[in-house]
Amino acid sequence: MFSFCTDPDTLDTARWFACYLTSGKHMGFYASFGTVLLLLAITAPVALIFGFGGAVAARSRFLPLRLFGQGYTAIVRGVPDIVFFLFFVIALDQAFEWLRHKVKCPDWDQPIRQGSDFIVCPAAKLPLGNAPQWVHESYGFGLAVLTFAIVFGAFAANVLHGAMRAVPHAQIETAEAYGMTERQAFRRVLVPQMWIYALPGLSNLWMILVKATPLLFLLGVEDIVYWARELGGMKTQIYAYPHPDWRLWYLLGLLVFYLGLTKVSEVMLGRLTTRLSHGQATLGGDAQRKVTPA
């Protein structure tokens, strides 16, 4: 990056580090922090949508839909989430390929499972065998996002279902007395009010989601843990920047990153609680009313 970086062997310590920390591989490492933040930015809203769908399904009058909603929220409780992560990534991949196989190669006569192999016709492969590298990487990332969204959607569904039940029932009755249909009352009264009741659960969930991001590494995405292990490993003299095993320091860096992320989230969520409490019939809302004169 700097002009004096051409021959690292001759540099003094400060310059050596300046060159070392701006090498091409380190840029990849810094970019992977972006990957983690991108995952959080995509997963959180998608999981919320899944959760909302699950909660609405669990309240439904239609029995199969209700059973589906309740089953979805119930199943993730008793099982370690990492099992889901490992399961869904392969299962989703195979499900997509199988569907494409059914559509694209209807006249394929061999079985898909041959012993220990899962074989679909070449046209149904995901991503296609001749696809460029970035397609493979984003497909992997997309699968990871979907998996995260399914697992965290179930937890969000649980939280939102509870929040919907916490909204005082009299409010909905009032809305109906004003002539609103059930659907209108749901949209205009229940949904705007449920967030304050959902917030403690959702903030807890956000903290868990933040702390779940290193699992990306297990799903085969080149995330910060991957880079920290890659860069920190011992480098011999054949590398431009030889150094002993520094993985400990890289991982300490990650630890600080996560602690910082937790702290920032705590502060932001605290502010959000204050805002959402405004005018609500809760202890927090009452306290605000007493401080600010009407």
Binding site: K211, A212, P214, V225, L251, L252, L255, Y258, L259, K263
Partner: peptide, 11 residues
Amino acid sequence: RGSPLFIQFFL
């Protein structure tokens, strides 16, 4: 509580 268990194991 503020850091992932996964990172704690690695570290």
